[in-house]
């Protein structure tokens, strides 16, 4: 018995299970209408949404936007970051801009984005791109700057040109930080897309923008399906975890010298 009590799994499960049980019982003893969020109802709703394919589709739509925005952010962030990390003049010139915009949260720009692009995918993608840009550029700069200058000097003495050095010495050396930046960027992008889709949904009154944030809004404003909302929340969390863990795995695999 003590063996079981010692097990990590048991300890991990105690709190969530207790909370779920309490939740279930408390509601069941009061007024169990099908709208009331209950663990059992949530599971039912999740099953339905999965079966109809609505949930996976919404998640895919959102994630697609994330990837689109991230691609832009990564491209800009890597190039600018590499330049800023290598050339001091570049860094000094652009850094004020980067640092001035960084405190402006991506979501704050959403009304502006809606103004410019209307309520739909472009606005959401813009917000995602903006959000993902900063972790990418900041970490790329840090990564490039962290490359041992001795390595660069060694390459110069071997007669290698500046651009080749950038490509073959600096960028690989900066990889660890670039990966961290990518992981953070994707995480922030995922959070931002949810917020963007929620807000767009709220402003556009639903519409056909798709995505999980929008689905959440529909559950809130139209079908008033609290169980649905919870299913969405949990899926958002699960995807976030998958992104994070997945990228950590990728880092581990691609950067053996860091282990």
């Amino acid at each position: 018995m003590t063996r079981l009590a010692d097990s990590h799994l048991l300890r991990a499960a105690v709190l969530p299970v207790t909370l779920l049980v309490v939740w279930q019982l408390a509601v069941m003893l009061h007024t169990p209408s099908p709208r009331t969020p209950l663990p059992t109802h949530v599971v039912e709703t999740a099953w339905t949404l999965l079966k109809t394919g609505d949930l996976p589709l919404a998640l895919l739509q959102s994630f697609g936007r994330v990837l689109a925005g991230f691609a832009w952010a990564a491209a800009f962030g890597l190039v600018l970051g590499a330049l800023m990390g290598t050339y001091r003049a570049f860094d000094r010139a652009l850094d004020p801009l980067v640092e001035s915009f960084r405190p402006i949260a991506p979501i704050a720009l959403l009304p502006l984005a809606i103004l410019w692009f209307g309520t739909g995918t472009p606005a959401a993608a813009f917000i995602v791109g903006y959000a993902a840009f900063f972790p990418m550029i900041v970490n790329t700069i840090h990564g490039v700057k962290s490359v041992d200058p001795q390595l660069v000097r060694a390459a110069r003495t071997l007669g290698v040109g500046r651009f080749t050095i950038l490509r073959t010495v600096v960028l690989p050396g900066a990889m660890p930080y670039v990966f961290v930046g990518a992981r953070l960027a994707l995480g922030v992008a995922w959070t931002s897309i949810i917020a963007a889709e929620l807000a767009v949904g709220a402003k556009a009154g639903g519409g056909s923008t798709g995505g999980i944030g929008q689905m959440m809004f529909v559950f809130y404003a139209y079908s008033v399906d609290l169980n649905g909302i919870i299913v969405c929340m949990v899926s958002v969390g699960i995807v976030a975890m998958i992104i994070d863990r997945g990228l950590r795995r990728l880092e581990y695999w691609m950067l053996p010298w860091k282990r």
Binding site: F217, I238, D244
Partner: peptide, 28 residues
Amino acid sequence: RILFEMIDPTVELLRPISGIAWIPLGLF
């Protein structure tokens, strides 16, 4: 250590669900 092992998994489960995702429920 024991308290950590009991609470941390729940924390790690809730953390990825950003505050923003709570807004609809919170509105309710």
